[in-house]
Nucleic acid binder design. Structure first.
Lengths: 239, 239
DNA sequence: AAGTGGTCTAGACCACATT
DNA sequence: ATGTGGTCTAGACCACTTC
């Protein structure tokens, strides 16, 4: 176990359990270093993880303090800020896919631009509706370069594309760039999502990257308005 | 100038200018260290900033590589992931406020819970519509504890509350927790935002925190569907 | 003045990828 | 085998807050 993970886990647990309460001061870096037999740099790295998670804040010259968040909210925050496919996010629910389209096409210009590949390079085009406990919640249109994801099968598309990428192809998914917008559903979307015409939808446009830097996925996800929420912790850049 | 900022700026510029292109390998940490007379830790910190910004990725044993993003997208990404008020985000537009409500009330239970203050503690309740170039784009309902923000005036509310907090009260805003959802506009909202009844809106629920860990703001922002976009870079937790 | 976190070093050892 | 990035140290100096 990495020492900085051990230290940050220790304090995260104490905070979530309520041993450290809102506005309490954590021990100083030197005290923590003595307790865990760790150097200053390691302690700093450990506590900076909690700062990134948004549960403590540091002030030079003063110390490190637990934020004013009540314990219930705190637990939710600790769960947040990961990115996963629909399947992984709903472990206690039955997630299925209805595949409406699965074909190989020449990459249109806008897709080629997002994936940074040559126009007309072959890409999969996949349209599917994801259902949670039988209810349609999101309609996804996904493009993936055939060069990066060879021999994708209908079976993979019906279950979990991410599982196929990670476990079969051993590709490592690292980051995603996501843009969230809102609009009215089209006729097709309202049919597939069991909505009224012109009901609101959340549109999530995403470009996914592997850890070698290649874009492997460009997708539009159209979410039912009553089944979408996105939570994020923002840090102000001071510059 | 901090050395790690200098180094990360150097490489960010090279990448944005196209001197380093997609999938190019950056110099190794030791080479960069020699060039800038910096230690390994400092170089690592510098390059990790670019990883957080989503423009390069690192692979242990292999090196650091520029991501597959075309140069136009790259510039946009460098701007992203800050949090600012409406005023700061629209420097080239005329941002005004129409204040519909500005009063001091006893904190309701749900607000007290978000701000982690006592129920019935005095809070400002502010309802205002923000207009960009004269067009209403977002309706905000904001609660702020009177204890933290004494003597807030109508003038501040009409211009920029953040300016008042930072420049008059010298409070340092550090992070925010934001939850984005989608729904249909209420009658009141559609009137104030010049929308048709039941047009879609994006609802951004936000809790803002100061440097010292106190929550200073709990707000609901109801955005016109055609004037809202939110961009974020996500990093997969590997655990 | 004392204590705090922020930056930085010059080294060490390790895990991993490439050749 | 070599080179890469990841972790960690023991110490230094600095900027800032608090008393």
């Amino acid at each position: 176990m990495k020492k900085y993970v051990e230290i940050s886990n220790y304090f995260r647990n104490k905070i979530v359990e309520g041993k450290y309460k809102a506005n309490d001061k954590l021990p100083s870096e030197s005290e923590v270093g003595a307790k865990f037999d760790a150097s200053k740099m390691t302690v700093k790295k450990a506590i900076d993880i909690l700062v990134d998670e948004g549960i403590v804040s540091k002030r030079r010259g003063a110390g490190t303090f637990v934020k004013s968040i009540n314990p219930i909210e705190m637990e939710q925050m600790v769960m947040a800020n990961q990115f996963r496919g629909t399947t992984a996010l709903n472990p206690n629910h039955d997630v299925t896919s209805t595949v409406h389209l699965f074909e190989t096409v020449k990459s249109p210009e806008n897709v080629a631009s997002k994936l940074n590949i040559a126009q007309n390079a072959p890409v999969y085009k996949i349209e599917r509706v994801r259902n949670i406990d039988g209810k349609p919640v999101v309609m996804e249109t996904t493009y993936m370069p055939v060069a990066i994801v060879p021999s994708l099968s209908l079976g993979d598309v019906e279950s979990s594309i991410y599982d196929y990428l990670e476990h079969e192809l051993k590709l490592a998914i690292s980051t995603a760039r996501r843009i969230i917008t809102v609009r009215k559903a089209t006729t097709l979307e309202s049919e597939r999502l069991s909505l009224e015409p012109h009901d609101p939808v959340a549109v999530v446009e995403q470009v996914g990257f592997l850890n070698n830097g290649s874009a492997f996925e460009y997708s539009f996800s159209v979410h039912r308005y009553d089944e979408y929420a996105f939570e994020i912790i923002l840090h102000r850049k001071v510059t």
